[in-house]
Design a protein around this nucleic acid. Sequence first.
DNA 1: ATACTAAGTTCCAAAACAGAACCTGGTCAA
DNA 2: TTGACCAGGTTCTGTTTTGGAACTTAGTAT
Lengths: 163, 163
Amino acid sequence: MKWRELDQVPCSIARSLAVMGDRWTMLILRNAFLRTRRFDDFQTQLGITRHLLAQRLAKLVQLDVLSKVPYQDRPPRYEYRLTEMGRDWYSVQLALVAWGDKWLDGGKGPPLQFRHQACGHLFKPVVTCSECGEAVDPREVTPVTGPGLKALQSAPAPKRRRA
Amino acid sequence: MKWRELDQVPCSIARSLAVMGDRWTMLILRNAFLRTRRFDDFQTQLGITRHLLAQRLAKLVQLDVLSKVPYQDRPPRYEYRLTEMGRDWYSVQLALVAWGDKWLDGGKGPPLQFRHQACGHLFKPVVTCSECGEAVDPREVTPVTGPGLKALQSAPAPKRRRA
DNA sequence: ATACTAAGTTCCAAAACAGAACCTGGTCAA
DNA sequence: TTGACCAGGTTCTGTTTTGGAACTTAGTAT
């Protein structure tokens, strides 16, 4: 299967990855959350080649994750800002940070911490259940096919057991 | 900057991506959470080439995200299971699913839903603050440099303003 | 005129990927 | 006791995608 076909797969992870699941794209978004907005700043901070950066930014604008807004007229210049769709990516970033902090900090502690302005504390993101409010343990979660899949139940089935 | 150098960057997102930030790796993990454990099953379900699958699985085992455990002796066969480190990736997956469901479902509803056994309901993951328990809004979060970064404040600084 | 700036684009070599065929124990049934 | 079958890989070849550096463009500033 090719990467370009991935957005056809009836799976929200596959679709999310089809849009964002590129190394550089996620790092661009990281820096966007850290308030980076301009081409050269992204390029310098990330060490990405200008070629790829231009391509990724164009794609993100096209998909409405970023928007290109003018910040001066003479000469005309644009900057890249998160849209609502882009801002909503934040929970993925927090989850990535939490995982990296927990498993890959090399014993030195987190490189970056986050303060929750509402309560004033440094915090860690906790995934909770929208229905009961409790923290969610992976082993307490059962996947169920949803409406978006029932439409096409002829998908390629895994075959394991011999007849 | 090359991809292989990414794990050197003092950023937990970069480090997480250095391990997991590959298209196929994340999909392998997705299926691991859906109880896939064997080489041929991964291969069939994902449509990944055997070559890449072998490579990715080996890498995940080496990094201790998956472990290779025997499931029969004659002939010797192994399956791949999530370790604690792997299981802990779940919050990232949930965040990816939630984002994909919200922004990319094509109006058809989520392909897959999740039931929280503890309370019995279909739920959506909500990111909350470990300190106050409230849901976290990205605009209420301030990043602060942490201990893992203070150790090396001579890192390549972004340079914007001329002298 | 000349230099500078932000934001790209173009070119080429190196690396990664897709697809298919092939290999390696080992079992099983005739 | 050979031939088919299986799981789990490895090898090969051609296509795509990256990485790195140089070049372009439109406008400002000196």
